[in-house]
């Protein structure tokens, strides 16, 4: 994997994704111990720079860092000097001067983590940038699918990326504005899955040139063929704009209703990056189906983020640190 930063799933490729998932397996094992901590990153400092609030993702990264014994520094935009007109660069350089080894960056604007790499010597991890990417979400989604597929076969032993060969995954909803979709398209297809995007054209990227996907506006035509249905969050403010008449019509055409879930193949997985709006992306009763993996995703997020931090900050020093 790119040994400096994680800005995009493209930095990893298939091998990188598989490496991270294997490492996450070790951290899943660590989590079962009485003291779920290893000294792998002792003496390292991980700063979370969340210019856009997301308590869930920030806590996931901070927990992941603490389990590796790293020191954690937390920077939230509300407590920052950005409001006083300080440039993004000034803010990053100030934090850099405090001596941090990794910056975990979340921002409402696409590309900020890439820009940050020019202003710091720390490793930069993209924790979600605008409508661009959210690579650790995609990694934890892959990990969760892999785990579920292994379980379905009745084994703990995963075949890692090989499980994805020929898997049919539908990503449904506001693909155009979704960083989760962009990362997941890259991750799922790198692992050999067939990806189909399902959205009205107003919520599809203007160009799918170079995207390894199929695309359709008709959810009903593809639903029986899907092994995984990945529902994207629809932002309420899109409705009522020109992109979408209203949320009811969205639910009617693209929501996972009871009827649609009945047409899913047996054992098909239903996923959502959360938080989900019941009654819009998914009918309330469907969200509680056993095949729905929402809570497992949250738990796996910590293992995956530990694995990413370990790869970027710790792997060079000592591969043994996990077992110490």
């Amino acid at each position: 994997m790119n040994d400096r930063h994680l800005l995009s799933i493209a930095d990893l490729g298939r091998e990188g994704i598989e490496d991270v998932m294997r490492t996450a397996d070790s951290f899943r094992e660590v989590a079962g111990r009485s003291i779920p901590r290893v000294p792998a990153l002792r003496g390292k400092t991980v700063a979370t720079l969340f210019f856009e609030a997301s308590t869930r993702t920030r806590l996931s990264f901070e927990t992941a860092a603490k389990r590796l014994s790293a020191d954690v520094m937390s920077f939230a935009a509300s407590s920052s000097s950005l409001e006083k007109g300080e440039s993004l660069r000034d803010t990053v350089e100030t934090i850099d001067a405090m001596g941090v080894d990794a910056m975990v960056v979340r921002h409402r604007s696409s590309g900020v983590p890439a820009q940050v790499t020019a202003w710091t010597s720390a490793c930069v991890i993209n924790a979600g940038d605008g409508q661009h990417e959210h690579p650790t979400q995609a990694l934890l989604d892959c990990y969760t699918i892999r785990e579920a597929l292994a379980q379905r076969r009745g084994t703990e032993d995963s075949q890692n990326g090989a499980d994805f060969a020929g898997l049919r995954i539908g990503i449904v909803g506001d693909v155009k504005h979704s960083r989760v979709a962009r990362s997941n398209v890259l991750a799922f297809s790198a692992l050999g899955a067939e990806v189909v995007l399902v959205a009205p054209r107003t919520l599809m990227p203007p160009s799918l040139d170079g995207w390894p996907v199929k695309a359709t506006a008709d959810l009903d035509s593809v639903i029986p063929d899907l092994d995984v249905v990945y529902l994207l969050r629809i932002q309420a403010e899109r409705a009522g704009q020109v992109l979408l008449p209203n949320l009811d019509e969205y639910h009617e055409r693209y929501g996972l209703t009871r009827e649609r879930s009945n047409r899913l193949a047996a054992g098909a997985l239903v996923m959502h990056p959360g938080p989900m709006i019941r009654g819009v992306e998914i009918a309330p009763e469907v969200a509680d189906l056993p095949s729905s993996l929402v809570t497992r995703q949250v738990r796996n997020g910590v293992f995956i983020r530990s694995a990413v931090l370990f790869h970027l900050l710790g792997a060079a020093d000592s591969g043994e640190a996990i077992d110490a």
């Binding site: 605008g130 661009h132 990227p205 170079g210």
Partner: peptide, 15 residues
Amino acid sequence: HEGAWSSRLGIAGQP
């Protein structure tokens, strides 16, 4: 510019 790159980069484009 609205096109392949704006779509990939997640930046709103001008057609």
